[in-house]
Amino acid sequence: MAKIVAGIGCSHVPAIGAALDLGKNGEPYWVRVFSGFEESQKWIAKEKPDVCIVVFNDHATAFSVEMIPTFAIGCAAEFAPADEGWGPRPVPVVPGHPELANHIAQSCILDEFDLTICNKMEVDHGLTVPMNLLFGKVDKWPCPIIPLAVNVVQFPPPTGNRCFNLGKAIRKAVESYPEDLKVMIFGTGGMSHQISGPRAGLINSHFDKNFLDGLTGDPVALTKMRHVEYMREAGAEGVEMVMWLVMRGALNESVKEVRRFYTVPASNTAVGHIILDNRV
């Protein structure tokens, strides 16, 4: 039986990817960010997940305004890094896990979560930056990835509660997969940031700390937060933190926080990271 052994929350700031790609990660500004992931990289290298489900949002890359799926799962054998306007990121092609991905899609749909199935999808920094932060700069990704894209571009994104319940359905799907697989699930994006309009630059460390605390200790309370509150308190784009609740929903009620990191800023955004061990 496949099992979700841990959940990982991680920002996906594009400038982090650019810093890595341009070799700026040794500069003091970026050392502050990357050093926060050193222990996590050791941890995941030791844990060796067989598959990672990465909940992320597409930033007008695979999906434009032509089609806006609320939840879309990548079922392809591989996912090419996209050209986001300055050429594709120099990262390896992302291997998929079509068998498990299709199983999750089927199970979730029968469980009344109508996922959009993507048999071809390019992936952007929303997916590849968290992978770099946890796996480092690699020639080959260490395990297959199942991308799960959530619409947070056009309002409204799914509610936090809906995301949390999707996480539960994903867990049920994973646990009904016959092969013994060690699965990890990533919730990405955030933390507080606003990158649009005259209020751009908003950061709310107090909100972020409470969010991290709540994620570990009382996620159900977080599922009740309304979109307008995310946007007002954590920035218009901060609402993407609902994606972390998909990850949290896939875990036990009680988890062990094994790692936490927070720093401001990476470019325009507060960087947050958490690892929750689900084997308690």
Binding site: V153, Q154, F155, G197, R199, M231, A236
Partner: peptide, 8 residues
């Protein structure tokens, strides 16, 4: 919310 254009 000031200085914000929500993309709805």
């Amino acid at each position: 919310i000031p200085g914000t254009f929500v993309f709805d």
